[in-house]
Computed example of a mutant assay.
Amino acid sequence: MPAAKDNIKAEQVYSALGQSLKAPITQKRIWKLQWRDNEIDLESEVGKPLPSSYQTGKELVLAIFECENLYKICTLSRGAVKGEPILVGKNSQSSPTYFSDNVNN
């Protein structure tokens, strides 16, 4: 969770957000998600802004949850404090990268 004061607070916020979105809380967490929408390649990364096509300005992606048939991407105004998260279908054109796959974390 970007801007969390420590790992404990980050876990508390992540768990609360997941519960409110009815998303499973697992140990395997998504760091980045790449997908294709209307012939456009898109990418979302925790701690960075969403693609400009979502018009959320410089709001950071707080979390990406992996659900049964889709992914839920959350920013403050899209799923966390208000609004609905961005929904990305799970298919051959969506590809998650997990924190455990990122050698820099």
Rank of each mutant, 00 (worst) to 15 (best):
R29Q: 15
Y14W: 15
Y54P: 00
P96M: 00
G18Y: 08
N7I: 13
A10N: 03
G83W: 02
L42C: 07
L33Y: 07
K72T: 00
C67M: 09
I30R: 01
F99W: 13
V13Q: 15
L21F: 10
V103W: 12
Q12P: 06
E66C: 02
G47S: 04
Y71F: 12
E11I: 06
N38E: 11
V81E: 11
F65W: 06
D37L: 07
E11P: 09
K90L: 00
V103F: 14
T56H: 00
S44F: 00
V46E: 07
G79L: 01
K72Q: 10
L62Y: 00
G79E: 05
E39C: 05
V61C: 07
Q27A: 13
F99V: 03
Y71P: 05
L50A: 01
W31D: 14
K82A: 06
P96W: 00
N69I: 10
A10G: 08
K32L: 07
E84T: 10
Q55L: 10
N69E: 08
S44T: 08
Y71R: 02
S77I: 04
K82F: 08
I86F: 07
C74V: 12
P24F: 13
L62G: 01
N104T: 10
V46Y: 02
Y98D: 06
A3V: 12
E84F: 13
I86M: 04
K72L: 09
E11D: 13
G83H: 03
I86V: 11
S95M: 02
A63N: 09
S53Q: 08
I73V: 12
P24H: 11
Q19L: 14
E11W: 14
V13R: 15
E43T: 12
Q27K: 15
T56E: 07
D41E: 13
D41V: 05
T56R: 06
P49C: 02
Y54K: 00
S100V: 10
P49T: 00
W35M: 09
S53M: 11
A4R: 01
L70N: 12
Y71E: 00
G89Y: 04
L70Q: 12
A23V: 06
A16H: 15
N38R: 12
A80V: 06
T75M: 03
G79A: 05
E45G: 02
A16F: 11
P2F: 04
L76W: 12
S77V: 00
F65T: 01
L42K: 04
I8N: 08
K48M: 06
F65S: 03
L17R: 15
L33A: 05
A63Y: 01
S94N: 04
I73G: 04
G79I: 05
L17Q: 13
W31G: 13
V88D: 01
G89F: 06
E66L: 04
A23L: 08
Y14H: 15
Y98I: 02
S52F: 07
A4T: 00
L17F: 10
I25T: 14
Y54R: 02
L87D: 06
S95F: 00
S53F: 03
Q19V: 15
W31S: 15
I73Y: 01
Q93T: 14
R36A: 10
A80C: 11
N104I: 12
W35F: 11
N91K: 05
V46L: 03
G89T: 06
Q27S: 14
G57K: 03
Y71C: 01
